[in-house]
């Protein structure tokens, strides 16, 4: 599902200037020509590091993102919706598997990634630190969070790292069902009884803030990412993706006569850009660093799954087996 915007941190080591300049030139020429970089190709240390971070965050987001929706499987209204939600949650976990494999090709073993998630070292998309309070929340997540994810992932699938692009192509095809399913659920509630309308409006009110946070901090306060853009690791600016999302989905929300809880939201007809209340980036930072409504329980559940599955993994393990980095 979830690209979750770009959260890059500057690293102290591995600046491109310290790389072999000849190799760096070939590498950049290849990317400029639209060629993909494969795991066995030479790449700058910084490229490897930032890609591992990004793909790993993406994988964690898929697996943690399955939790708020997963809790609604037993309470889904009706058999068809239950089947659809189970399929969606299974897809998300499958996406995590594809993404972990892509990140592994860069040299970080999966065990290390899971451990970094459990110990709070790795991040995942901030939106999953908020609860899905009612059934309508799952509808809004499946429609609008997945819509945001598609915008992010379609952009990333044109990036430079082969294994990540291939995983994303497969993921994007599956996401289109999630989006349609989510839209169907929102439309059903929004065109239903006054009580159902109230329910979906409440959910939208709760989720608008995380949705605006979804693409990451405004370009004005983001870490410089020119190099990452040139290397096609980052494919679009956070604000550009947010604009694209608003362009595509605000009219669809308004046509259902739902209101968006931001009095300043409007499209500037001269510039063609959306204007909105600047999201609270302090809250974003606070929540992503562990202090959100659900951070602790998400990690507790993830840890429990690993601990409870451990005896099964060990029972099936062969003593002579050796971990090998996947090929592509």
């Amino acid at each position: 599902m979830y690209g979750g915007g770009y959260i890059f941190e500057e690293t102290k080591n591995g600046k491109p200037e310290s790389e072999d300049q000849g190799k760096l030139k070939n590498f950049e020429a290849k990317i400029a020509a639209g060629e993909k970089i494969e795991p066995s190709d030479w790449m700058p240390a910084e490229y490897r590091k930032q890609l591992i971070r990004m793909i790993e965050q993406h994988a964690h987001s898929e697996i943690i993102g399955a939790l708020p929706e997963g809790t609604w499987i037993t309470r889904a209204p009706g058999f068809r919706r239950k089947m659809a939600l189970m399929a969606k949650v299974q897809d998300e976990v499958g996406h995590a598997q594809l993404l972990y494999s892509a990140a592994e090709t860069l040299g970080k073993p999966r065990e290390d990634m899971i451990n970094d998630l459990i110990t709070g070292k790795s991040k995942y998309s901030n939106v999953f630190n908020y609860p899905a309070v009612t059934w309508a929340d799952t509808a809004v997540i499946a429609w609008l969070i997945d819509a945001g994810a598609i915008i992010n992932q379609v952009a990333n699938s044109k990036g430079s790292y082969g294994p990540y692009c291939r995983a994303l192509e497969r993921i994007c095809i599956e996401e289109s069902f999630h989006l349609k399913y989510g839209h169907d659920n929102v439309v059903f509630l929004a065109t239903g009884t006054p009580k159902q309308r109230e329910m979906v409006q409440d959910a939208l009110n709760r989720w608008w803030k995380p949705i605006m946070h979804f693409f990451g901090p405004s370009d004005k306060i983001s870490v410089h990412t020119e190099t990452l853009m040139r290397w096609k690791v980052k494919m679009a600016s956070n604000d550009d993706m947010r604009q694209k999302f608003l362009d595509m989905y605000v009219p669809k929300i308004w046509e259902l006569k739902l209101t968006i809880p931001d009095p300043n939201l409007k499209k500037n007809q001269t510039s063609g850009k959306w204007e909105y209340t600047e999201p609270d980036w302090e809250e974003f930072k606070r929540v992503i660093n562990g202090d959100g409504p659900c951070n602790k329980e998400r990690l507790a559940v993830r840890r429990k799954s690993e601990e409870k599955g451990e005896w099964v993994r060990r029972a099936l393990m062969r003593q002579d087996e050796q971990y090998v980095t996947p090929l592509s």
């Binding site: 592994e104 999966r110 459990i118 110990t119 451990e310 993994r313 087996e321 050796q322 971990y323 996947p326």
Partner: peptide
């Protein structure tokens, strides 16, 4: 704390 017994088999 990290989980020491993590093992996710071969690929």
């Amino acid at each position: 704390k990290p989980l020491n017994e993590l093992h996710h088999w071969q690929t």
